[in-house]
């Protein structure tokens, strides 16, 4: 029989408090960083900080650092398959029109709900597709 105490990993209080404050500090940093514009880097910075925070939560609050490696495997495995899902779907969605350009754009660029131009409540951006007639819009309503 294995030693129960070894299984329980009672971590020191200070460690929990340190991780907690680390998470709060990172939250402040990410909010501050978002107030500035780094162009393409915005996404990377925000996601990078989120990954660090998530790692802290998983490693210390969820005890992955101390527990049996199998739990780590389960958790990382779930992220791996999620990655496959998103990346493989993007193989499609980002590369439509590689050969036939006409399929790269949706048939209706703008949804039918914005087709209220006639009633005078045109939204600032809805003007683009005036070629679509109201009759067309009617056939495409989504009421069931």
């Amino acid at each position: 029989m294995k030693d129960d105490a070894a299984q329980r990993h009672i971590l020191p209080l200070n460690l929990y408090l340190a991780v907690g404050s680390g998470l709060l500090v990172l939250t402040v940093i990410t909010v501050a960083a978002a107030q500035m514009d780094f162009g393409q880097m915005n996404l990377l910075i925000a996601m990078g900080i989120a990954v660090v925070k998530a790692t802290l939560v998983a490693m210390f609050f969820m005890h992955l650092k101390y527990d049996n490696r199998i739990y780590m495997l389960v958790f990382v495995g779930s992220l791996l398959f999620l990655g496959v899902f998103i990346i493989f779907t993007m193989f499609d969605t980002l590369r439509r029109g590689d050969i036939y350009e006409e399929i790269s754009e949706p048939y209706l660029k703008e949804a039918v709900i914005y087709r209220t131009a006639e009633t005078g409540t045109a939204s600032s951006h809805a003007a683009a597709d005036s070629s679509h007639t109201a009759a067309e819009a009617e056939t495409e309503t989504t009421d069931h």
């Binding site: 527990d67 199998i70 739990y71 389960v74 958790f75 495995g77 779930s78 992220l79 398959f81 999620l82 899902f85 998103i86 779907t89 993007m90 969605t93 980002l94």
Partner: peptide
């Protein structure tokens, strides 16, 4: 414990569908 971790795995993939949805429309 293994059971709850596998449950969390299903949760990650449940939310995963929505993250995928977000990523594609954002792109």
């Amino acid at each position: 414990k293994l059971g709850i971790w596998i449950f969390l795995l299903t949760e990650v993939l449940l939310f995963g569908g929505l993250f995928c949805f977000y990523a594609i429309y954002r792109s």
